[in-house]
Nucleic acid binder design. Structure first.
Length: 397
DNA sequence: TCTGGGGTCCTAGGACCC
DNA sequence: TCTGGGGTCCTAGGACCC
């Protein structure tokens, strides 16, 4: 029987922000380092050994690890380091799919004669990232994306783990359910209630049982993953579907004027980023968090997409004003603005009168616009066509 | 222990259309 | 006056990820 080769690598920089800090300041090496004061954005492994975790409150973290050095984040340094790491990825693998600032999938199929086995490429990758960027990186190798990611998680820190195809299920089934992608606090608790603690136990359950416990999508996904079924290919990243910004306000009560000033800043940040990315959006979502940590969202959808600060600000203000009593009662501790339903802000030009083009050609052009710019671009083109009497949309160069 | 800032995807109900 | 079934879109909430 033909067994597919394990060629998918999941590469993940260890404690990314903290590692960059240790790289740039020799005094921090070998020491417990915490990045971020209010909340822990990253902790070095020396700090993690004391129980410090990402997203933990700063006070708790300092109590657990009083000798830790706390440093403020330097986002531009991390962003630079990330780009350097991605250059190494691109140099060593033909297919790279970025997941976040510090992790990516690489597919090295077909590279054996040119560059060696996947494991050999992984060894070189780790070496090159260390040499060229000065950061420790962990790599997992398997036949599926999901298992490669699980493997890197198990191999951390500064490790390499190759899961041979014939060992996959044995490896997977011994792991605790928390290792599965998509199993967070809630799902884990729900499964533990039923006495399910390992991936092997999940694999022994029927799909319908999992669906009835976790809902259709999660149930199906978990069932597939427990059997290491994951058909997703490594490929270019999907485009961003929303752009947002938020700001924690603290527990102190804020006047409506203060909140409005924050809102203005958020909308400005978001719309600037949208315009820089040449994206426009139709749905504005306001996010609230209250004193008791409950949350709420309110949204509004425009007929036409926009990236205009004033337009989006007006909507955001309206949504906020409508909830003034709720906010007064429950105490606002966080406000966020996000724009979704994004499309490209690419002017679709109309050139030739419809009668002079054949329908097939028009269909093809519309198809291409839809593929490249989304359905909304087609709609805009058609609307514009009606207004102007021209019907042939042309793609920008 | 009292929690930042950036995202993704799924579900469910209601409005609306054919 | 009352009635089906299918589809899409909008809104709100929730789980999860780094």
């Amino acid at each position: 029987m033909f067994v597919q080769e394990a060629t998918i690598l999941h590469a993940d920089i260890d404690s990314f922000y903290a590692s960059v800090e240790q790289r740039d300041d020799p005094r921090l090496r070998g020491r417990a380092v915490i990045v971020g004061a209010g909340v822990v954005l990253a902790a070095s492994y020396e700090a993690k050994a004391f129980g410090v975790r990402t997203a933990m409150g700063g006070r708790t973290a300092r109590r657990l690890c009083p000798h830790a050095v706390v440093v403020p984040p330097r986002m531009s340094a991390y962003s630079e380091a990330s780009q350097a790491v991605y250059r190494v990825f691109e140099d060593l693998a033909p297919l790279v799919e970025g997941l976040s600032i510090d992790e990516a999938f690489l597919d090295v199929r077909g590279m054996r004669r040119l560059a060696g086995s996947p494991a050999e490429i992984a060894v070189r990758l780790r070496h090159e990232v260390r040499r060229r960027v000065g950061l420790p990186i962990t790599v997992g190798i398997a036949r599926t994306k999901f298992l490669a990611k699980v493997a890197s998680g198990v191999a951390k820190p500064d490790g390499l783990l190759f899961v041979a195809p014939e060992r996959e299920l044995r490896f997977l089934h011994a792991l605790p359910i928390e290792r599965l992608w998509g199993v967070g606090e809630v799902t884990a608790a729900r499964l533990h209630e039923l006495g399910v603690a390992t991936v092997g136990q999940v694999a022994a359950m029927s799909e319908s049982a999992l669906v009835s416990i976790l809902g259709r999508a999660s149930g199906r996904q978990l069932h597939a993953l427990a059997h290491n079924r994951d058909p997703r290919r490594v490929g270019p990243r999907r485009r961003r579907r929303s752009i947002g910004a938020q700001c924690a306000l603290g527990r102190r009560r804020r006047s409506p004027e203060d909140v409005d000033a924050v809102l203005l800043g958020l909308v400005d940040r978001v719309t600037r980023r949208m315009r820089a990315a040449h994206r426009i959006g139709r749905t504005v979502t306001l996010r609230f968090r209250f004193d008791d940590f409950t949350r709420a969202t309110r949204s509004f959808t425009f007929d036409e997409p926009t990236a205009e600060t004033q337009e989006i600000l007006d909507v955001a203000r309206g949504l906020l004003a409508a909830e003034a009593r709720l906010i007064e009662r429950r105490g606002l501790t966080l406000v966020g603005v996000a724009v979704s339903n994004l499309t490209d802000d690419t002017p679709v030009q109309l050139a030739l009168p419809f009668e002079r083009r054949c329908e097939l050609e028009l269909d093809l052009a519309i198809d291409e616009i839809r593929t490249r710019f989304g359905l909304d671009a087609v709609k805009r083109a058609v609307l514009l066509g009606r207004e102007t009497g021209f019907a042939m949309p042309l793609l920008p160069d």
